[in-house]
Amino acid sequence: MITKKLALTAAAAVAVSVAFAGAANAQSRDQIRAVGSSTVFPFTTAVAEAFGKSGSFKTPVVESTGTGGGFRLFCAGVGPAHPDVSNASRRIKKSEVEQCAANGVAEITELKIGFDGIVLASSKAGQHMDLTRAQLWKALAKDVPVDGKMVANPYKRWSDVDPSLPNVEIEVLGPPPTSGTRDAFNELAMEAGCHEVKEVAAIVTDAKALAQACMAIREDGAYVEAGENDNLIVQKLVANPSAFGVFGYSFLDQNKDKLQAAEINDVPPTYENISSGKYPVSRSMFVYIKNAHVGVIPGIREFVAEYTSERAMGEEGYLADKGLIALPKAERDGVRSSAVNMTPMKL
C-alpha cells in the first residue's frame, strides 16, 4: 500500500524534475539548431554531418519546416530557445525581415549557397520532349486564351497544345501548393511562360487578375498533386511512361538511369546549364545566420566556414555530389568573404 503510494509519488517527482531540468537546459545550448526549407535540408544536413565529424563541436540539429515556417521560428527572437540558422529556397521577404527586427533579430547574414534546377522529367521508356515555357504554361494553366477569350483549359494531349509535341495525354505529377518547389515552379515556369503568351495580357488587363490567371494550375486531373515525396513521383513515372513529373534536380541526378528530362526552351537541365543560368527554371538557395548568436552558441562561425568552404560548396565539393549546383567561382568568393566577416544583409 504505502510502497505503491511511494512509487506513484516517486514517478510524479521524476516527471516533474525531468520537466524542470528541461526548462533549465533551455537556458543554454551547445548545439547549433537550423530550421527551414526542405529543399535546402539535404545540403545543410550534409554540412552539419561533416562539421560534426571533423570539428570539436556537436553535430547541429537540422529541422525541415519549409521556408516560411523556418523564418517564423527564426524570427521569433534572440536566445537559446530560438534557432540560429534558417534555410530558404527563396530570398527572405521584406515582411519577414521586419518581423525579425520587431523581435530583436536585427542583424542577419545571408549566404547564397547555390542553385537548384526544377526539372520536368519522364521515364526513359516514354517520349522525349522539347518544349517552351509558353507551351508548358498552356498545357498546365487552368484557363487559356482561345479565340480572344479565357476558357477552361481544353487541351487533353500535348499535341493539342502544339502539333510539334508528342501525341501523349497530358499527365503531370507535381508538388502541392504548400511546397516551396511549387512556388518556384509557379514563378519561374508558369508565370514566365504566361508572359510569353501575348494573348493573355491582352484579354486580362487587371494586373492582379493577370497574376492570378498566370499562376493558376488546372484542377481537372491533368496536373496531379503527388505530395512532397519526390521519390514517390520517380516511382510513379517509371510505372507510367506517359506521365511527367516536376521535382528538384537532385532527384534527376540520382535516377538518371531511369529518367530523362524535358528540354525547356531547347536547354536540357544539366549541371552546366543550370550553373550558368541558361536553363530557365532554376532558383537560388539561401542560408540565413542570426548574428546575435555568433559567439553565444558555440561553433556558428566554424559551421559557416565549413558551409562556404571549397570542399563543401565548391564545384567538386560534397554538396555537388548531393545535387547542389555550385555558384560561379567569383560569386562563391563573395559569399565566403561575407561569411567570414558575418556581414549583415541589407534589403
Binding site: 531540468a21 528541461g22 548545439q31 552539419a48 554531418e49 540539429v61 529541422e63 525541415s64
Partner: peptide, 17 residues
C-alpha cells in the same frame, strides 16, 4: 515540437535532441 529533424548524435538523456 521539432522531433522531425536531422540528428546525428545518439541521444544520451531526456533533454538531448
Amino acid at each position: 515540437i521539432g522531433m522531425v529533424a536531422f540528428i546525428v548524435d545518439i541521444p544520451g538523456g531526456f533533454t538531448d535532441s
